[in-house]
């Protein structure tokens, strides 16, 4: 029997073509291939997700929803989504319906400029605004389990979608302030975020490999200290590390910084909840 018939050959070529097309379609996601920054004044030549710098074991833990410790918050958030609360006896789903549809993309857009308070807000703030305005319920404490759960749930609806932050228009001023914060030396150790995350990503700081300090995986599970933290909490851990005063929850400084971080990670896929060493 002849193996290489014209028909077989055509089939093989079609297969190869499909593979090639597939490879061309899959854009780099900062995990094994870096994302190229679109902005000309971007400080990084290559944008890498924190995922890229983790061990095989940690990556596998993130990739497997059953093994990812932060998924307990996702499950809790799923319950809150349809739980009625407040004076108007509504739940999130009363207004938004199926989260998989209505919340897809939400995790890629924040922080967003919010005209009423004239500042940037993140997903946590947005959830609290909905509670206050539409549900007649008390806003949750920033740092509460409830808010952590629901923000993990909402952000994960954008899993794999690219971060496309708002930095122009009314956001520009806040973005600039965030950038200044990021590049300013501070704390008793007199170091800026840039010193660890722009200059030395991939290098060891004692036992830990430094990443680019990207925000696309947050809230994320940190193996040390063994809990799921919001982006604000992670930033404060870094500030405490250099012996700087931590930022108040929900403060403008923190939101400005989150705005800058989102721009810095433009084009990275949302990974919430990520697992990091």
């Amino acid at each position: 029997m002849k193996i290489i018939t014209p028909r077989n050959c055509r089939l093989a070529m079609m297969l190869a073509g499909m593979l090639l097309a597939g490879a061309a379609v899959a854009e780099p996601d900062g995990k094994s291939e870096p994302v190229a920054p679109k902005a000309k004044d971007h400080p990084l030549k290559e944008i890498w997700s924190g995922y890229h710098f983790q061990s095989e074991e940690t990556r596998a833990q993130q990739d497997d929803a059953d093994a990812n410790p932060a998924m307990e918050h996702y499950k809790a958030g799923e319950k809150f989504w349809s739980k009625v609360a407040g004076k108007s006896k509504k739940s999130c789903s009363s207004c938004h319906g199926d989260a998989a549809k209505s919340m897809r993309g939400a995790g890629t857009r924040f922080p967003l400029y919010y005209p009423i308070s004239k500042r940037m807000i993140n997903v946590e703030d947005r959830i609290n605004l909905c509670r206050e305005k539409f549900m007649g319920a008390k806003p949750w404490d920033l740092g509460s389990k409830e808010l952590l759960a629901l923000s993990v749930f909402v952000k994960r609806q954008s899993l794999g979608a690219r971060v496309t932050p708002q930095t122009s228009g009314p956001a520009a001023n806040f973005f600039d302030k965030g950038k200044t914060f990021y590049t300013t030396r501070r704390g008793q150790l007199d170091m800026a975020c840039t010193h660890c995350h722009d200059k030395y990503a991939g290098k060891k700081l004692r036992g830990l490999t430094l990443t680019q300090g990207q925000s696309n995986g947050y809230p994320a599970y940190r193996k040390t200290p063994g809990k799921t933290v919001s982006l604000g909490q992670q930033i404060n851990a870094c500030l405490i590390r250099v012996r700087a005063a931590p930022l108040a929850a929900g403060s403008e400084d923190l939101l400005n910084l989150e705005t800058y971080l989102a721009w810095r990670g433009q084009g990275l896929p949302v990974e919430t909840p990520a697992v990091r060493e």
């Binding site: 405490i240 005063a245 931590p246 930022l247 108040a248």
Partner: peptide, 25 residues
């Protein structure tokens, strides 16, 4: 001086919840 990453993350108080930022300060 430089509080090493591992040490700070492991240290109680390094990652206090945000609403406790007064405490953190």
């Amino acid at each position: 001086a430089l509080v090493c990453a591992v040490a700070v993350f492991a240290a109680a108080g390094a990652l206090l919840p945000l609403h406790a930022d007064a405490q953190q300060k």
